[in-house]
């Protein structure tokens, strides 16, 4: 079955509706944070924790985008097939969008939870680090003219840049951080979701994952067309 225009429209419409519905549910019908986790009377985290539903998705997609860049880079270096380079660069382009969403979400969360948009929390700083790596990756690509050289060099940088992902992931454990922990470690103030919360979380996760894959496919298409177009131009000269 081919992915037709009609199916794309349906997919987008469904995504639009599902995410809006889930967001409405998260905001208006999900309960507040349980009492023992609140730090003081009138803690804004009572409902502010709901930002987690969106920043967590963005973070997961950012990691996935980095992983795709890594895989594309490694496979390119092994096979020298330019297709993989295009996949890696498309993933970096989509990834930088999601990283920006992550940073904005993180800043809002930080303002609600800690009273400042930019708190220099390790999590925030390392997420910014991820953003910079993707920006460096994309700017290196604009600076090299030869297609094969560009693919080779950016693949090397893509593999290097993946170091940022584990670093970001462990950052709130190895540094002193206010960021909520997702795992139940000894000193963590981790919270767990009830059943409806978990369902909403999974719905949002799935829809953002589909959105990411769709955007990756679209960017891949655009890049390929760009290359064809440039080949035609070169042929005419």
């Amino acid at each position: 079955m081919k992915f037709q225009r009609k199916q794309a429209v349906i997919l987008l419409a469904v995504l639009w509706a599902v995410v809006l519905y889930a967001m409405y549910q998260v905001l208006f019908s999900l309960g507040p944070l349980s009492e023992e986790l609140l730090r003081f009377e009138g803690d804004p985290m009572r409902h502010g924790y709901k930002i987690f539903f969106f920043s967590m998705q963005a973070a997961a997609i950012t990691y996935i985008a980095f992983a795709v860049v890594l895989v594309g880079s490694v496979v390119y270096l092994r096979t020298k097939n330019l297709k993989w380079d295009t996949i890696a660069s498309s993933s970096a382009k989509v990834g930088i969008v999601f990283t920006t969403i992550l940073l904005v979400n993180g800043a809002i969360f930080s303002n609600v939870g800690w009273g400042a948009y930019w708190n220099w929390d390790p999590r925030q700083t390392t997420s910014l680090f991820l953003w910079f790596i993707l920006a460096a990756y994309l700017s290196l690509r604009t600076a090299v003219d030869n297609i094969e050289t560009r693919a080779r060099l950016s693949a090397v940088l893509g593999i290097f840049g993946f170091v940022g992902v584990p670093l970001t992931h462990i950052s709130s454990t190895i540094w002193v951080s206010n960021h909520p922990q997702l795992y139940n470690t000894a000193q963590s103030s981790g919270f767990s979701l009830d059943k409806s919360g978990l369902t909403l979380f999974m719905i949002l996760m799935t829809s953002f994952l589909i959105l990411y894959i769709y955007m990756l496919w679209l960017t891949y298409k655009i890049e390929t067309q760009n290359q064809i177009y440039q080949n035609i131009l070169r042929g005419e000269q």
Binding site: F132, A135, A136, L140, A143, V144, L153, L167
Partner: peptide
């Protein structure tokens, strides 16, 4: 070595090295 064959190499080098070194710098 990576940026050797890039245009405006000195400029690109800063943009690549500083982000990758950010953890070390901090």
């Amino acid at each position: 070595a990576l940026v050797m064959s890039a245009r405006s190499r000195e400029l690109v080098l800063q943009i690549i090295v500083l982000p990758l070194l950010l953890p070390v710098i901090i």
